[in-house]
Amino acid sequence: MKKMLVAALAGGALLIAGTPALAQTVKPALGPYGYGKVKLGMSFKQAKATGKVALKWGDKDSGCSGWDLKAYPTGKDSVGLYISKRRGVAVIFAAKGMKTPEGVGIGSTMKQVKAAYPKVRTPRGLNPHVSVPGNPKAHYTFFADKGRLEGLSLALGTQDCVS
């Protein structure tokens, strides 16, 4: 009986000791359908109901309204995402620390982008972009300076908020 109790206690201690690692929060990925609870195509009302976004300018009747993800507030003259009256959540911009499921984020090199997304294209006069793996209705756009990402966005292919 003592041996079984010791074994049970030892097993319980291991289980308890392992719990904090399991309890750690894993950051959601930017894509393929959104960021955490905020999903591309979600209406103004649905996005607001997640409790994860804060309105910066505009309203439900605006052609496009500017929002921030509450966990990643932006500066005075920028937004973290756009919600289109017609398309819903149309564009989500990466904040520092966000990564795509393929591990690309702000600070990644274009070499890393090309390794993660071999089909990335850079049409003349435009930023590099690629269809999102797993979501043919969306694309990533990469904003690089000197070969390193300063910005990244996830957008609906039909978004009507930014050019």
Rank of each mutant, 00 (worst) to 15 (best):
D59P: 10
L126A: 15
T100C: 03
F142Q: 00
V79P: 14
L149S: 01
K56E: 06
L69C: 08
L40S: 02
L156V: 06
P32T: 02
K52A: 14
Q46W: 08
R87S: 11
K39P: 10
Y35R: 09
A23R: 14
A10W: 04
D61C: 09
P32A: 08
A155W: 01
K2T: 15
A17P: 04
S131L: 15
K137Q: 12
L81S: 03
L55K: 05
R124G: 15
A47Y: 00
K85A: 09
A71M: 12
V26E: 03
A13V: 12
M1I: 15
A23H: 09
Y140G: 00
Y35Q: 04
G75V: 07
I106F: 02
W57N: 12
S153A: 09
T109Q: 05
L152A: 04
R86N: 14
S84N: 09
K70E: 08
P73F: 09
S84H: 03
M110W: 04
T25H: 10
P123V: 08
Y140H: 07
K2F: 12
C161G: 04
K60T: 15
K56D: 07
K37G: 09
V79S: 15
F93A: 12
A94T: 05
A90L: 07
K37N: 13
R124Y: 14
P123R: 03
L5F: 13
L156I: 05
A23G: 06
G58A: 10
K111F: 04
K3Q: 13
G80P: 00
W67S: 05
K99N: 11
C161S: 06
K76H: 15
K2M: 14
A54C: 09
R121A: 11
G36E: 02
A23C: 12
K146P: 07
P128G: 02
K146A: 10
A29E: 09
V162R: 14
A95K: 11
K111D: 07
T25G: 11
T74D: 12
G41T: 05
A71T: 14
P123K: 01
G18F: 04
S153P: 07
K3N: 14
V132T: 05
K111W: 02
K3I: 13
G88L: 07
K99P: 10
G103N: 04
Y33G: 13
L5S: 14
G134Q: 08
K114R: 07
A144V: 08
A7T: 10
Y35P: 03
G151H: 00
V6W: 12
V6I: 12
N135L: 03
K70F: 02
A13I: 08
L30C: 10
L69K: 05
G36A: 01
G66E: 08
V132K: 02
M4Q: 15
P118I: 06
A17M: 07
R124N: 11
K76T: 14
L30N: 02
P128R: 00
T25M: 10
L69P: 05
K99F: 06
S65T: 03
K27Y: 13
G88K: 05
W57Q: 14
A7Y: 08
P101N: 10
L40T: 01
C161I: 03
L30E: 01
K2N: 15
T100N: 06
A7I: 13
T100V: 02
A90M: 10
K37S: 13
T122Y: 04
N135P: 05
V38E: 00
S163F: 15
T50P: 02
V26M: 12
G58N: 03
G66R: 07
T158L: 06
K39V: 11
C64Y: 03
P128T: 00
P20S: 05
